[in-house]
């Protein structure tokens, strides 16, 4: 496998004012192939979301190398887009204008970005809601907008930071199925952070288990389930074995600081 996303020995230390420095990431290494769906699971505060922000280019690491498709990551770039846990929609913009945000910042003319955003609004199933404001949407719909916004700039890599954590269980199930459909349609490389074992198994080709802070990649588990995947697959023996395997890796990391 040729590495499409490559992170080597990434170190990140936070120095909060008047506090001891915190090592968020220590010699963090991962390697993701093109078109792969990889999840990162780990205990709360292990730095998995932080790593996404580093890879997104929002937080510069203290040391280490990161590259996407051979291109060094040194700041935000058009080859990546993030779907945020708390959606991050601009509340004063309509669905359409939110989806257009990335294209607008890319300098695409209004007449050209209209059909593109329309296409992705339809892809995420929000046709007819273009003129709605975020406060008029349910949580699931907001995250559909977040997903459409990320896809609209046509990034090679989709970073997803616990995108469904703020949704209720049923909406989350629906969104997971939608994500798989869209991923197959849009052919993106996805790096997906979650704290949910079942979600990781259901969606991923591979799952990276992180240690507790300072976060390192502890173990990589292959998910050889066939695709396309459906909801029934979740009750198979194979699926549950994988969940158990993942749980066994994770549980050692969930001690000491308690509530995980």
């Amino acid at each position: 496998m040729v590495a499409y996303i490559e992170a080597k020995n990434v170190n990140l230390i936070f120095t909060p004012p008047n506090r001891m420095p915190v090592t968020a990431l220590k010699d963090f290494n991962i390697s993701v192939g093109e078109g792969e769906f990889v999840s990162i699971v780990g205990p709360s505060g292990c730095g998995k979301s932080t790593f996404l922000n580093v890879l997104l280019g929002l937080i510069p690491p203290h040391s280490g190398e990161m590259a996407i498709n051979g291109k060094r990551v040194s700041g935000p770039g058009q080859d990546r887009a993030m779907v945020f846990q708390e959606f991050g929609l601009l509340p004063w913009r309509t669905v359409l204008n939110n989806v257009e945000l990335g294209l607008e910042l890319k300098g695409v003319a209004t007449s050209e970005r209209r059909p593109v955003s329309q296409k992705f609004i339809e892809m995420v199933g929000l046709a007819g809601f273009e003129g709605h404001y975020p406060h008029e949407l349910s949580g699931g719909m907001k995250q559909r907008v977040g997903l459409a916004r990320a896809l609209a700039t046509d990034p090679d890599v989709l970073l997803m930071d616990e995108p469904f954590a703020a949704l209720d269980a049923q909406t989350r199930d629906i969104m997971q199925a939608e994500l798989l459909r869209i991923w197959q349609e849009a052919k993106k490389t996805v790096l997906f952070v979650t704290h949910q074992i079942e979600e990781a198994v259901y969606l991923s080709d591979r799952v990276i288990v992180m240690t507790k802070r300072p976060g390192r990649a502890k173990k990589i588990i292959d998910i050889p389930l066939p695709r396309p995947r459906d909801y029934e697959m979740r009750v198979t023996q194979e699926f549950n074995d994988l969940k158990l395997q993942l749980w066994n890796e994770l549980k050692d990391e969930l001690t000491v600081h308690g509530n995980g």
């Binding site: 708390e86 509340p91 007819g128 949407l137 907001k142 559909r144 949704l167 049923q170 629906i174």
Partner: peptide, 19 residues
């Protein structure tokens, strides 16, 4: 701004405008 009340269940969002 932090709209965490958004867990309102709407499993089939495309079916109807917010009522």
């Amino acid at each position: 701004m932090n709209d965490t009340t958004s867990t309102a269940v709407s499993p089939v969002p495309a079916s109807a405008a917010p009522v």
